[in-house]
Design a protein around this nucleic acid. Sequence first.
DNA 1: GTCTATATCGGGATAGAC
DNA 2: GTCTATCCCGATATAGAC
Lengths: 232, 232
Amino acid sequence: MTRPIKKSEATCARILDAALDMFRTRGFEETTMRGIAAAAEVSLGSAYYYFESKEDLVMAFYERAMEAMAPRIEAALASTAGFEETVGALITVKFEYFQPSRNFLGALLKHAADPRNRLSPFSKATRSIRERDQVYFGRAIAQSRDVRVPDELSPHLPMLLWLYQMGLILYWIYDRSPGQRQTRLLREKSLALLVGGLKISRFALLKPLRTKIVELIVLAEGGTSHGASEDA
Amino acid sequence: MTRPIKKSEATCARILDAALDMFRTRGFEETTMRGIAAAAEVSLGSAYYYFESKEDLVMAFYERAMEAMAPRIEAALASTAGFEETVGALITVKFEYFQPSRNFLGALLKHAADPRNRLSPFSKATRSIRERDQVYFGRAIAQSRDVRVPDELSPHLPMLLWLYQMGLILYWIYDRSPGQRQTRLLREKSLALLVGGLKISRFALLKPLRTKIVELIVLAEGGTSHGASEDA
DNA sequence: GTCTATATCGGGATAGAC
DNA sequence: GTCTATCCCGATATAGAC
């Protein structure tokens, strides 16, 4: 209790390290709990003592990833570049960090569509991670001088940008072009188009369209579990 | 051989019926092959004799669904209503048909995001089903008199409408509002907005924007496995 | 050709002994 | 806290009844 490093912590870390390593190299499905236990030199039962399920190990992976990316994200936000560059940089951090785990993420995103699945980026369990990431986009918007977002749209924009990022990541995971060139192109072109759209979204002429779009966004958000009201 | 109804067909149908029933009531993961065999009153071996895997039973479900919906879809296309109504009717057929299987579809869509998974609506295995459905949307476009789609956009529109439909279905599956009211609202409003967008997409003023969007669509299609070139 | 019974394997998860 | 033994399930394989 008094010592900072207990034996149990070391065991726990050893299991997690072994798991993440195998997840990265072999993927999620291919990695077995028996394999993890063997690599960590503990029994199967011990592995389950520390992590209730294979999914729990994935949650730990998410947490670690967000922690590791935080300083790089701060660096991206600290630069004085324009809005498009800053958002592009935020997204690039993710792509670079997840590059070695691309296959693993692929296996994970099988569960992505189901917000009831703990591992889904839309689940309650991943909520804090998701919100932390959306706050980064919010800061990019707040500090940008070259793009002024209409007031009705701005409360939704962090979420929308995050969603856009998730779409890109999904595309990237299944992109089979060499070096995922296709995703890079799509990322650049779509971001330019998106920022262009935001810039003209203030035009008075577009007011009715804008209103309808915001209505739709509010409506869509209302039906999700991570919206304002949580239960049902 | 000569008799229309062979014993094997009856057995096969019994297994499929039992499976679909259990899928609907209990969900995909919770339904076991042993359970299916027991409900169909055949041995486990027999179940595997007719269906190579649990996934095969799901494929049979898809096939059945498309067959069952075909006449209703034809009826929707036969009406002389406008474009928005016709597309709305096409989509409504799906919602009504899949209503009793909503939970089951939820379990399925765990695999949806992975185009390499056979059960994914984006997979090679489901390709013919997907294309058949897209053709329906193509017919709705072709016969519509109130909406003229720009030439650059029209080859992509059946796919885009199908994708839009899939998005709505995904939303619907996880919609927890009573009677999935939320989805109905979203469906109506988004379709109106979409058709409105299509109508103004012909304006000469929007030509540069249109070009960029089409470029983006072509780019995105190029990276998918169900695009023009199939392998890699 | 149709079907049963049964054995086997790999893998996630759990119970209970120590 | 750790391990062994066990269970369940999907999947495969096989031998043989009819």
